[in-house]
């Protein structure tokens, strides 16, 4: 763990960088105090984050199932065999691509809806804004299992409100239409549910950001004759870059790790597993089948992919930043 060096630190504590120091650095009392204060947090982080990650990595190198855990079979170190098995599985690649596309759609969806509604909220009167926020908070507060189940009820092929309404307005052939049977229809329905329960976070973050933009900037833009669209594109969004990065990375991580919605709404991965995403696949292949070694390998791969995506995104953002 590195101590962030702040130039304003009184006493000018020399920061310790990794690697063997040429000469013994004098540990200043300030640094010692800083480390002391950081120690509890460091300990908690090591216990809660580093140790589980380390165990995940170690387990992924063993043939480790229930029999091994309860002492019925000896531990067998298999090196990278679990990874080889995973990468040799054509289904894994299908599921991986599916997961990426599905997550991308969900991220774009929640960002679009969230930003759009945040702009709307900043432009309407107090009462409609209150209603909008209450609705968004309701969606946000709904537990994922409950939300998914309610959506399933709404889209039920026999008794669902949606099919009834669609049939009511005279759409032919929607009686008993199954929203969870076709692969793309099912993915679309789940994506809509995911967007529904994740846009409020984006909306509230962006709304707070918009409120913090000085009004004179917006007034200046209005005086220059900028349209609302133009204001959003060239004034609001650039000024909210930091917030948007946070919201995007959060959404990527959430949507890449979707489990509940797919598990509940497509009944564990859809007809013939056509709607599997990585997390459900890991659960089914590994943990339900007590094959913890393979499951840990999937976990390591997912962590790696998420780190890569996040780092790449941060890098791209830094690249476009104005000097």
């Amino acid at each position: 763990m590195r101590v962030p060096a702040t130039p304003t630190t009184p006493g000018g504590a020399s920061t310790h960088r990794g690697g063997a120091p040429r000469r013994r650095p004098r540990v200043s009392p300030d640094l010692r105090a800083a480390l002391l204060y950081l120690a509890p947090a460091g300990f908690v982080l090591a216990a809660m984050l580093a140790y589980p990650l380390y165990q995940l990595g170690v387990i992924s190198l063993f043939d480790y199932g229930q029999a091994q855990a309860s002492g019925g079979a000896p531990l067998d170190f298999v090196g990278l065999d679990n990874y080889a098995q995973l990468f040799g599985e054509p289904r894994f690649w299908t599921v991986l691509v599916q997961t990426c596309v599905f997550a991308a759609v969900c991220v774009v969806g929640s960002l679009t809806v969230g930003i759009g509604l945040a702009v709307l909220a900043s432009r309407v009167r107090a009462l409609p804004r209150m209603a909008l926020f209450l609705a968004a908070l309701g969606a946000w507060a709904t537990p994922a299992v409950a939300g998914s189940t309610v959506w399933l009820f709404l889209f039920d092929q026999d008794f669902g409100l949606v099919n009834e309404v669609l049939a009511g307005v005279g759409l032919a052939g929607v009686e008993n239409f199954s929203w969870t049977y076709d692969r793309y229809v099912a993915f679309g329905l789940v994506a809509a549910q995911v967007v529904w329960c994740s846009f409020p976070f984006v909306m509230i973050t962006v709304y707070a950001g918009i409120r913090s933009i000085p009004t004179d900037v917006l007034e200046a833009a209005a005086l220059d004759g900028a349209t609302p669209w133009r204001t959003l594109r060239t004034v609001i969004i650039p000024m909210l870059r930091g917030l948007l990065i946070v919201a995007t990375i959060q959404s990527i991580i959430w949507d890449f790790k979707i489990f509940t919605q797919i598990y509940v709404m497509t009944n564990g991965g859809g007809v013939a597993g056509r709607n599997l995403v990585l997390n459900v696949y890991a659960y089914q292949e590994a943990f339900a089948a007590s094959n913890y070694g393979l499951g840990a390998a999937i976990g390591v791969v997912m962590t790696g992919i998420l780190l890569l995506i996040t780092l790449g995104y941060l890098r791209a953002q830094r690249g476009t930043e104005e000097p």
């Binding site: 165990q55 170690v58 063993f62 480790y64 091994q68 309860s70 002492g71 913890y292």
Partner: peptide
């Protein structure tokens, strides 16, 4: 020092 946990039951 620790690999995956294992019970030694007999």
């Amino acid at each position: 020092a620790c690999g995956p946990p294992q019970v030694t039951s007999g």
